[in-house]
Write a protein that binds this DNA or RNA. Sequence first.
DNA 1: ACAAGATGCGTCATCTATGTTGCAAGTCGA
DNA 2: TCGACTTGCAACATAGATGACGCATCTTGT
Lengths: 195, 195
Amino acid sequence: MATPASAKPLRADTERTVRTILGAAERVLSANPAATMEQIAEAAGVARTTVHRRFASRDALITALAAWATRQFQEAVEAARPETAPPAVALYQVTANVLRVKIGWRFAMDAAATDDPEVARVHAEVRAGCERLFARARDAGLLRPDADLDWARRVYYALIYEAAAEAPATDAAVDALATRLIDTLLHGFGRPAAP
Amino acid sequence: MATPASAKPLRADTERTVRTILGAAERVLSANPAATMEQIAEAAGVARTTVHRRFASRDALITALAAWATRQFQEAVEAARPETAPPAVALYQVTANVLRVKIGWRFAMDAAATDDPEVARVHAEVRAGCERLFARARDAGLLRPDADLDWARRVYYALIYEAAAEAPATDAAVDALATRLIDTLLHGFGRPAAP
DNA sequence: ACAAGATGCGTCATCTATGTTGCAAGTCGA
DNA sequence: TCGACTTGCAACATAGATGACGCATCTTGT
């Protein structure tokens, strides 16, 4: 793993510091991807040297950030039980859960395109799960039998990305967003076909 | 204007050089947004100093790149006559035309979020035109009467962004992509509603 | 309470990208 | 053809970011 949980139980304050830095890094970097370690440290309220103590290099920090976000992403997906719940339910649950993560970890999730093997594995896994879910949705009659599932998945990802830009505050707003997103995915904006 | 056409008629070779650099910058920067001037110069087949002679600074280069892409973008939109053609036709034409530009100038179009006033003006103008087009489409019965036009526009932009990632080679492929995109925008992936 | 460990601060070393300049050789345009 | 302009090359200057230490001070875990 990128951050071996088996390594060592960090001291309480250290744990706090690390989290604070990751949070600050997300905030600062999402506003300006070229932000310096200095700016990140300042946003975290720690000295620049402390950041370097916890993360060997800038790359290491970003990798850790991506790994952290990816872990939350994975949990968000798994919590929706996408393999066993009915397709319509799973689709909605996954969407709402993932939106919550994406909203708060926009930069980190984008940076997840790094070549960290563990991060890549998780994303590939989630993607495969998404494909299975879409296939189940089609078999259940939720999607048209002739739907291009790969294009559908890409559109779905794109919609999530776009929807996450709204950054709603409340849980209810996220749910409403997920509902609207799924509705758009399924029916688009045109009038119901009349034939 | 960002690049005053009124400035001076560049010498033929200079014109060529500038274009080559812009093209190389697009290619290199879309692969790695943090690429150096050195890498861009190398890709363009010129000396680094030449790049600096034509573009005072890195920022200036990126601004010029954005301006260049924005100009093409505007032309692509206007060529579709989005204000006068029937909504369905205009929507298709605009999509196909814009896709062609977006495919070749991905980085430049993204960088267009800079605060160059002229670039911002064009994008705001295009966006307003898009909103008018969507309103016309709704009035013409192409979109549901209760469609959220702002969300629809955002989805449309997101779909174009995603579709442009395919980077098809032939004109026919772009047309097919545009068709599929519009179909998705209008009808989604679900089965036609039965009620 | 005490030892181990963490942080802040100041300091230093280094490195890389940016931007400049001068000059010789080549290209363009009228 | 000839003057003006452009390019490549090499060298130089600078700034800003990264990363490493040592030391005094404060926190944590037991």
